[in-house]
């Protein structure tokens, strides 16, 4: 049994310790927003946060995540403070920026792109273009949404600082 916290919920999973976190999330916990792209940490489609750090879940044995906090794309949007179960979720500023800039095309890589961006902005609230290059060049997009991703990162950074985009 592996114990971990996924999107704020404690989970106990019957999984072999060397099973990658990606397949635990997708097949055992039904969280399919995190995607399989390459299986060798080359494309970033499987990016999740483990204790706040962006990690490639396709090569991360679930045994190494025992007792840790995992955040996936499904856990990013928040219920508003004081909201009820039926209150609509409020998208994370990064997700909202992705909508506002019409970033997604096929969308398959975007969960990974968004999780990498959230980690970037947590560490660096005002990234330069070079900072964005450094943080996001490990996330592949075959549709070529990079120019829009760049704009969306800047927009999200401004929104998180409370500036009008």
């Amino acid at each position: 049994m592996v114990k971990l916290d996924v999107n704020g919920r404690p989970e106990e999973v019957a999984a072999e310790e060397d099973m990658p976190l990606l397949w635990v999330l997708r097949d055992k916990l039904g969280l399919t927003g995190t995607k399989y792209g390459c299986g060798i940490a080359q494309c970033g489609a499987c990016t999740v946060h483990v204790d706040g750090q962006a990690r490639r879940s396709c090569v991360l044995p679930v045994g190494d995540v025992h007792g840790k906090k995992v955040l996936t794309i499904e856990g990013l949007a928040q219920k508003p403070e004081g909201g009820t179960v039926s209150s609509p979720v409020r998208l994370h500023a990064v997700q909202q920026a992705w909508l506002d800039e019409n970033v997604p095309q096929c969308g398959y890589c975007q969960a990974g792109q968004i999780m990498s961006t959230v980690a970037l902005l947590a560490a660096n609230p005002a990234p330069t273009d070079d900072d964005i290059d450094a943080a996001l060049s490990a996330n592949l997009c075959r549709c070529g949404t990079y120019p829009r991703i760049r704009r969306a990162v800047h927009r999200a950074a401004a929104a998180l600082k409370g500036e009008a985009p």
Binding site: G33, E74, L91, P104, Q110
Partner: peptide, 9 residues
């Protein structure tokens, strides 16, 4: 088609 592509749904 963008919304389900940013929230994992």
């Amino acid at each position: 088609d963008a919304a389900p592509k940013v929230d994992g749904s």
